[in-house]
Design a protein around this nucleic acid. Structure first.
Length: 154
DNA sequence: GCCAACGTTGGC
DNA sequence: GCCAACGTTGGC
């Protein structure tokens, strides 16, 4: 089993939206590295740290898991969508996304500030300078530290 | 295939 | 709203 961190802007789609939807296709990712993680490396049951970015207090807000392996991201074919990609065809899709399922909100929000203060988390990609990747791998230890520190474990 | 210009991300 | 860092684009 693998562990991942997904960034999302809470005003656009936060953990509460996911809680309401229960499951959602993680569409709209238009970065090749992030796409490759989803398409090539994710399996059903992989755990996800749901991170709120570009907001007043950024940090990890909840937990989710991969509920369906990667499939073509339908928004790339949709002329109405802001994620429409004229170079993508159904025969040769360019973008893929997994589906994620809500697990829980963290009892206590694990802020970026807290991540920075924990030396056991200093290697997380989220802390590395200029890292803008919206999906990054996380180690099992890192995942468990955050889950344990944020209320009851899973 | 180089690289300058441009757009985006995201913490502060 | 600033700006550093980075990815993408497109002319050559």
């Amino acid at each position: 089993m693998k562990y991942w961190l997904f960034k999302s802007e809470p005003e656009t789609y936060g953990i509460s939206h996911l809680e309401k939807d229960c499951i959602t296709p993680w569409s709209g990712v238009r970065n090749y590295q992030a796409r490759n993680f989803m398409r090539d490396d994710m399996s059903i049951g992989d755990k996800i740290l749901f991170y709120h970015s570009n907001t007043k207090i950024p940090g990890i807000a909840g937990l989710a898991e991969v509920s369906k392996v990667a499939e073509p991201d339908l928004t790339q074919f949709d002329h109405e969508s802001e994620y429409y990609d004229e170079k993508a065809t159904k025969a040769h899709p360019r973008w893929f996304c997994v589906e994620m399922a809500f697990l829980k909100k963290l009892k206590s929000f694990y802020s970026l500030e807290k991540i920075k203060k924990n030396s056991a988390l200093e290697e997380m990609r989220i802390l590395q300078k200029g890292n803008r990747l919206s999906i990054t791998p996380v180690s099992k230890d890192e995942y468990q530290i955050i889950v344990k520190a944020s209320g009851k474990g899973l």
